[in-house]
Design a protein around this nucleic acid. Structure first.
Lengths: 206, 206
DNA sequence: TCTCTAACAGGTCAATTAACCTGTTTTATA
DNA sequence: TATAAAACAGGTTAATTGACCTGTTAGAGA
């Protein structure tokens, strides 16, 4: 045994497991992804798997803290903060996600929303972790909205409430997109969300 | 055995199982509710349970078609159709749900959204069934919006897109409410949703 | 060079799961 | 009333699950 030898690479091994587990859990859900499935998808031995993650919950926690947090940052926080305005950033995020969905043909939903809905009732610790990601997501949008207010692009808008609204619209639309296996809910909802912003922003600022 | 005798009541037995299963599945999810749990919650024998529902999927299908469809009708379709206007009906539905959540202390989420997010990727048949309920939900709201248009309460609004928007806002807000175990996402989102309608409706009509 | 710890390998185990099976009782129908 | 079919009772089972266990090897520090 051990014919192929072995290269100790704890960080790489760990990352490999988290990435594969994030992909599998995002697609199939937490409960539906067995430790055996996760191990197979990760392409590591049982021993290595158990060494890095002694329990499924420990793995789930890391998937949330690292995998999901990164996904939200990449899909939302970065685009919104780089955009010329909050509505523009929101439109960018929606459009990129819709394009990605139409590229691969099926809708597996928002990773954060999927796990939050599945796990919030079961584990308070995981729930709190996911709530924190929702919070940072909303904070990024609220921050951009505040920038727009300061720049005089908009007025009479409550950044926190509006940010909550935006994330709610997206999460709900994505849930319906998953149920219908269609991007229509996302497109329709984005359209109305832009209409909502049109009443709050200067006509030329949107 | 059979000391207490037995009263054949197929419809009642079936309803008992569906009601208990709807409650359990809505709270804990589909996968987390084992056949054993569902049987215990239903308070029936294994034999009766297996007789009415030969498989878990068969039970899930009936829970969706009967339990969830009724829940959506009671919480949304009926209030909206009875209201004086669509925004008023939406506000009524939100308020009643928030009041109910604050009464029992914890947020278990929207039954339809919970199951749709959990099961859409796993079973096309269940997915289609849930999509149909989303569809009827949106149709009820769109119908009311059309009534408002006809009555001259509003103008320049696309009933289908707006209905999609409303359901998305609610579903997403409820998901965040579940993640935070707070009603704040629902209250904030309702507030912004009303702002959205304010721009579409006559000032005195809302 | 020696040693100790973490990294890894591969297999095992009790518990849980969904489905099924055999037997009994009620009720509709002829 | 005779009888077939449905309604119910209670237990069984093969497969899957998450956790664990014993051994082996690489690499850092003394």
């Amino acid at each position: 045994m051990a014919i192929g030898g072995r290269t100790n690479d704890p960080a790489g091994m760990r990352r490999k497991i988290i990435d594969a587990s994030f992909a599998l859990m995002s697609r199939d859900g937490y409960a539906a992804s067995s430790m055996h499935d996760l191990r197979d998808a990760s392409n590591v031995s049982s021993g290595a798997f158990a060494h890095h993650f002694p329990s499924k919950k420990a793995l789930g926690l890391c998937v949330i803290r690292e995998g999901i947090a990164r996904a939200v940052a990449d899909a939302w926080i970065t685009p919104v903060s780089k955009a010329t305005s909050a509505p523009a950033g929101i439109r960018d995020a929606f459009s990129a996600i819709v394009a990605e969905l139409e590229r691969n043909g099926s809708v597996s939903g928002c990773p954060l929303n999927n796990l939050a809905v599945e796990l919030s009732s079961h584990d308070p610790e995981l729930r709190q972790e996911m709530d924190a990601i929702f919070e940072s997501w909303r904070a990024a949008i609220a921050g951009k909205l505040r920038d727009d207010l300061d720049a005089g692009l908009a007025s009479d808008l409550d950044p926190q409430r509006a940010a909550m609204f935006v994330v709610a619209v997206y999460s709900g639309a994505m849930a319906m997109a998953k149920a219908s296996q269609t991007t229509a809910p996302l497109l329709d909802s984005l359209s109305e969300l832009i209409n909502y912003f049109r009443t709050l922003y200067r006509p030329d600022a949107i």
